[in-house]
Amino acid sequence: MSGNGTPLLEIRNVSKYFGSVIALEDVSAFVRAGEVTCLLGDNGAGKSTLIKVLSGVHKPTKGEYLFDGKEYNFNSPRDALELGIATVYQDLAMIPLMSVWRNFFLGSEPTKGWGPFKSYDAEYAKRTTKEEMAKMGIDIRDPDQTVGTLSGGERQSVAIARAVFFGAKVLILDEPTAALGVKQAGVVLKYILQARNRGIGVIFITHNPHHAYPVADHFVILRRGQVYGDYTKAELPLEQLVQMMAGGADLEALQHELEAASREGEEGAEELAETAHAIEEELDELEELGDD
């Protein structure tokens, strides 16, 4: 990915205080169209606050919020949404008891007919859901199936496809791969790349460097409410990213612990090795995808 062009969405020197608590201090980050910016940070690093600032839920205490070069001051997430800044929350994405097509168009239902006889254009909604999902490379088996029967990864994918369809220019994804298995997380990462390739600026929030690395063009690492590092992919090998995320000393301690644990039983060690191998393969595959 190229590193030039003006940012689509940018925050400059943003701080957010809650009473005496400093949630964010002097944070700057940006995303360009057709790029993925990864916001990384451990629990308590200020990721959630930053998402809420980006999506218009919180107003920053200090600092600037720029979209397409113009400064904005949002009063509600609706303002952000109208500009094309869509946020997909981890748990708020979908309503399990409703079918895929009903979920897809919830809040923006297509209608046909006139006056009091205006009805929900279900045929169009079903067809479009299927088509849009196909564009993201997902074959929705049956648009009538309830979202509750989809896997976690599929649900996130539907939410992403939905945001893209409704004209998102910037897609903010709140931990879309958390609580997903290796394979499922891989599926979601693939759709992040699909969205990027369609020219959308993606802000991908995660605490998992292994998920971030294959898809990101740009990394912003948060720690204790401040920017701890800001790198392009070329500047930062995966190992270093992992080190920075966990904090070198913490990680080393953890590594020793794991090694000790794996020595306890042959079977355990084998299992661990297998898991590690599976992750490696998955990552290679994703990197290939990300490079084209």
Partner: peptide, 20 residues
């Protein structure tokens, strides 16, 4: 077959998700 119907299902299924 109306959008209001969809809203009813949404409001009952998960009010917060529907609001969002």
């Amino acid at each position: 077959r109306t959008k209001q119907g969809n809203w009813i299902f949404g409001s009952g299924g998960d009010a917060n998700a529907a609001r969002s």
